[in-house]
Design a binder for these strands. Structure first.
Lengths: 252, 252
DNA sequence: GGGGGGAACTGGTCAAGACAAGCTGACATG
DNA sequence: CATGTCAGCTTGTCTTGACCAGTTCCCCCC
């Protein structure tokens, strides 16, 4: 502790704890000394210790459990979401990309869907190449693996494309909505995915059961017909600590 | 303020401020009432107000400036990093993917490189398909646009592939390291990118001049020779508020 | 009129104390 | 031996109070 360095005390404490964590002094899953012990160790007040721990929590390094202690967060298991899951071959036998992906990893996947119809706002209209206000079919999905929510997905299609098809039903049948579109003569030409990241809203954090300091990855996928017409857009929200996305392409 | 709801006061204050922000009552760039004013408005103590504001800062919604006030963070401008920048055609005329990308947007790109040689650790060895301990060439780059740091990139190649080439020099010449590899007979077959996200370390936050509550996007790209041999791996770190990644592929 | 100084704001840090709420384990009781 | 209770630990929340440090702007002085 250097009180004359100009660095706030709570940041010095946080830096020291962080060092000990990465150095392995506190192993993954291990409990840190209690706040009151840290008060004695560092010679600062409890709010200062709490400020330091809050910093580490915002960085996603530790979790605090009331009545128990503060623990070093263990490294998280990694899922993969490969774009090859969207191939027609993969669609032939299963219910869709997510179900296939999860099942392949030994998870028990499940998903609940809510369907609604609404006029397209400006963003949706722009991405789907339609007039704002045009009716779109919205499939709002919550995906779970072993009961744990792992992904939110909001899919939107021009209603014109879905009227009278099972895409407006909860169960879209084998291969999912993409398979139904192709059967209806809308062969998919290419996909575009737009990937970003941000901190979750409180609602997202609780829905996805996110620990503190964990961002979400946002993916917007658009599926285009072979003539370039946008068929579907899909806004996905993924917990960043449970997913990595893999993309692969040939050099040109 | 409902003191009997069980919801902590600072969360109620944060929720109320958040609502007003998304409702537009406090416009982007606008100043929130000072902490002491909020103390009067909500009838709670200042640390409670500060806890609420800290929450909004961790969410990336507001920025605090000492001596001035707390401001609603304006929506961030968006860059794009397209994979098509890696095509041979694009390499023909310029110095590399990043330089081309930035120049195309009217930025003045610059980058500083540090080169070193080190034995491969387990992860690097695994990804490059070599034995741990094998010497690799490391190109550690800091990329800037108009002086602002916008990307960190650590590129590693088996030293065997770079010995005697300008890849071990600061300036790799037109088209960058990939062009030199191809000239040396290592035609690139395909690329794989692995995308994730997390909160930055304090060092990353200061190097990338990140505001609070802004995650980083991590991309690990591996370039493979046409026979499948890994040629290069590149660990990139991007500020999530300044980048979105775009991937595009044909349906199969 | 121009410049310097300072008052009055702003957020940043820290202390000491109190009580609430959740968990664990020892201990008494059946 | 099984079970339920409770003491004693943990973190969570909130208060009052104080001082520091950066910014802005007005006012006085030159």
């Amino acid at each position: 502790m250097d009180r004359s360095s100009g660095v706030p005390a709570f940041r010095q404490v946080a830096a020291d704890l962080r060092e000990r964590i990465v150095a392995g002094e506190y192993e993954p899953g291990a409990r840190l000394p209690s706040e009151r012990e840290l008060v004695d160790n560092y010679g600062v007040s409890r709010p200062t210790i709490r400020d330091a721990i809050d910093l580490l929590r915002a960085e996603g390094r530790v979790d605090a459990v009331r009545g128990v202690g503060v623990f070093v967060r263990p490294p998280t298991q990694i899922e993969r979401l490969a774009r090859s899951r969207l191939s027609r071959a993969a669609r032939a036998e299963n219910k869709g990309a997510f179900m296939a992906d999860a099942a392949a990893k030994g998870f028990t996947p499940s998903s609940s869907v809510k369907i609604r119809f609404e006029p397209a706002d400006e963003r949706v209209a722009g991405l789907l190449g339609i007039e704002p206000g045009t009716e779109v079919t919205v499939r709002d999905r919550v995906m779970r693996a072993n009961g744990l929510v792992v992904q939110l997905a909001v899919s939107r299609l021009p209603r014109e494309l879905t009227r009278g098809t099972v895409i407006e039903e909860v169960d879209t049948g084998p291969g999912g909505a993409y398979a139904r579109l192709e059967e209806a003569g809308h062969a998919i030409g290419h996909y575009v995915e737009d990937v970003g990241s941000r901190m979750p809203s409180p609602e997202e954090a609780s829905t996805l059961q996110l620990a503190e300091g964990v961002p979400v990855i946002t993916v917007t996928r658009i599926a285009y017909r072979q003539d370039g017409l946008p068929l579907e857009m899909n806004d996905m929200t993924l917990p960043a600590d449970r997913y990595r996305l893999t993309y692969e392409w040939a050099a040109e």
